[in-house]
Amino acid sequence: MSSISLIDFMYQPLDVLSGDSYSARSINSSLSFYLLVDGMGKGLSASLSSMLITSFINHTIDNMKKEDNFDFHKLIDKSLDYIKPILLEEEALSIDYLLHDDKKKLLHYAKFAMPAILMQNNNHKIIKLKSNNTPISRYIHDFKVSSYNTSDITKYLFYTDGMVENSTRFKNKLYIEYIEKDFLDSFTKDAMKERLLWKIDTPEDDITFIFINSLDLKNTIIAEKSFITNFNEIENANEWYTTIWESLTDDVKKRYDAGVVFTELYMNAYEHGNLKLDTETKHKLIENDIYLQTLQEIQKDCTKKIFITINKITNDSINYIVTQVSDEGEGFDTEILSKIFRNTKSFNGRGVFVSRNSSLGIYYNSKGNSVLFLHKV
């Protein structure tokens, strides 16, 4: 794999009734769909319209995927036909419909009165894609879909206007004056969020953005190794990983945090990935004091391996260590991760929760048999 895209979201509604909504869907191995909706105005009407069209679009995508006939233009057309009769006389919606084709390196977009998309290319220059359609009202009749070649694009920022129209701590200046530089300087969503929240006085509207960073994993490898699925190899893997980090930094805290995350996610690959041990069974084995004994038995017939790749990527003079742990198991439904992160008291998935909080973020592939995590050195 030469590159991988890390996709992150920030959703910060101003009130319970939010006019903003978003969605991100994997259509197939090469197509990814992104949606941003901003109901103009505040209150129940904007919130309801935003929620309704987002739900309808997700439902339509589900049906198209079932029938294997996804059509971007038809999706937009059907959603407009659905929402137009619902909108009030003077009500309008701003929407981004975005479809990225990773195979053909094309971004197809229909932007209805949304702020410009920001993209960063290989030369660290900003490219902006402005809206190509008017706001959605009950009187809109047609729309335009445009395409942009993304072969040299490394980062993307899609956002609603609540982000750029917010006042800042600097007199008479809105955040729109700072967003491009902050985007260039940010390697992760959290870095972008930190820069944003430091500059604005207080949020004055719903803030929603999607931050995508495509990492070069081909030319930045500093170490890689595979391990057999054996309990004794866990210690060997930890020792190897520790040695790598000792060569990267003298900061004991950073080395400790990286080690915690590695141990947790390596164990997940060993237990749940290659050995297919589910969480409920694991807890019963521990309660009956036969956990280690059972692992020894199961692993005898396992020929699968665990693969570790470590990359060092430099951004804005800062080095980031990217560790990827992959197993040869069947994977899992990664939708459960959102439940784990919302319910921090749940015992199930605590390792994943701890890992996310001891790193700059963890990212599973769609299958659930490979996880990537970041640290700064």
Rank of each mutant, 00 (worst) to 15 (best):
I4S: 02
S5I: 04
I7T: 09
F9L: 15
P13V: 08
P13C: 11
L14D: 03
D15F: 08
V16M: 08
S21A: 11
S26Y: 10
I27A: 07
S29T: 10
L31Q: 09
L35N: 07
A46R: 07
L48A: 09
L48M: 14
T54R: 15
S55M: 09
S55W: 01
F56S: 07
K66P: 00
D71P: 02
F72S: 02
K74G: 00
D77W: 02
D77V: 00
S79I: 04
I83G: 04
L87D: 05
L88A: 10
L88G: 14
L93N: 09
I95C: 12
D101S: 08
K103F: 04
L106Y: 13
Y109P: 09
A110W: 07
A110K: 11
F112C: 06
P115T: 06
L118R: 08
M119P: 02
Q120M: 15
N122C: 06
H124Q: 13
K125S: 14
I126A: 12
S131T: 13
N132S: 07
S137T: 15
H141Y: 10
F143E: 10
V145D: 02
Y148H: 14
I153M: 10
L157Q: 02
L157S: 03
F158M: 12
E165T: 11
F170T: 12
K171T: 05
K173A: 01
Y178T: 00
Y178G: 04
D182F: 05
L184I: 13
F187I: 02
T188R: 11
K193P: 00
W198Q: 14
D205L: 03
I207W: 01
F209S: 03
L215C: 04
T220D: 07
I221P: 00
I222H: 04
A223N: 10
E224N: 14
S226C: 12
E233D: 05
E235Q: 13
N236Y: 02
A237H: 08
W240F: 15
W240I: 03
W245L: 15
E246P: 02
E246G: 13
D250P: 05
D251E: 06
K253T: 14
K253P: 00
V261L: 09
L265V: 06
M267D: 09
Y270V: 09
H272M: 11
D278H: 08
T279R: 08
K282V: 04
H283L: 12
K284E: 12
L285I: 04
I286G: 01
D289R: 12
I298H: 01
Q299K: 12
K300N: 07
F307Y: 15
I313M: 06
S317E: 15
S317G: 01
I321F: 08
Q324F: 03
E328F: 05
G329S: 04
G331N: 10
T334P: 02
E335C: 02
I340K: 10
R342G: 00
G351A: 07
V352R: 09
R356P: 00
Y364V: 01
Y364F: 13
N365D: 14
K367R: 12
S370F: 01
V377L: 08
